[in-house]
């Protein structure tokens, strides 16, 4: 086979390879979404983070506005300190509340933000004061069982 034919085929091969990579990056990985935009860091303390992981989404009204960048244990208050990067396009009031929520019944955990009414916006390095921990299924079940037992006891006492 002569040189020109080989060149053409190798060119096609390399182009197809890069097309594959581009397909993976754009269509599968959604490169355009987040990684390049500018962010600011906000912290929040939670009594229990459940199964929250690094890179979990931070959503407000269901829209992804940032990602969790760090989860740390605070040895003074015995609480978890979660740091997340929020996109600078999205500004939130200072009294915004953070909750740890679960997408679906068995889905991933994420941080949900609910905007407050303060006129001052969050800045880099601010800490959210209003937080709500993850719901731990075991606690929920034991609460339910206790209240059920209490109800039964009340019913018996009335008889």
């Amino acid at each position: 086979m002569n040189r020109a034919t080989i060149d053409v085929w190798v060119g096609v091969f390399v182009a197809a390879g890069f097309a594959g990579l581009l397909f993976l990056a754009l269509k599968v990985g959604n490169l355009a979404s987040f990684s390049t935009s500018q962010t600011y860091q906000v912290q929040a303390k939670f009594a229990n983070i459940g199964g929250l992981k690094i890179r979990a989404p931070v959503k407000s009204a269901g829209v992804v506005v940032g990602r969790v960048s760090e989860v740390r244990f605070d040895n003074e208050s015995y609480e978890a300190i979660v740091t997340f990067n929020l996109d600078t396009r999205f500004q939130f009031p200072r009294d915004t509340a953070a909750k740890i929520l679960t997408s679906g019944l068995l889905g991933e955990q994420y941080v949900g933000l609910e905007a407050g009414g303060d006129g001052v916006m969050l800045k880099q390095g601010d800490r959210l004061r209003l937080t709500q921990s993850a719901v731990v299924l075991e606690n929920l079940i034991s609460q339910f069982l206790f209240s059920k037992a209490a109800e039964d006891k009340d019913a018996k006492d009335k008889k």
């Binding site: 091969f13 390399v14 197809a16 390879g17 890069f18 097309a19 594959g20 990579l21 397909f23 993976l24 599968v28």
Partner: peptide, 14 residues
């Protein structure tokens, strides 16, 4: 060749 082939394999698989 190898990374290009692997990328094509993944793209084709998806």
């Amino acid at each position: 060749s190898m990374p290009l082939l692997a990328a094509m394999f993944s793209a084709m698989g998806i």
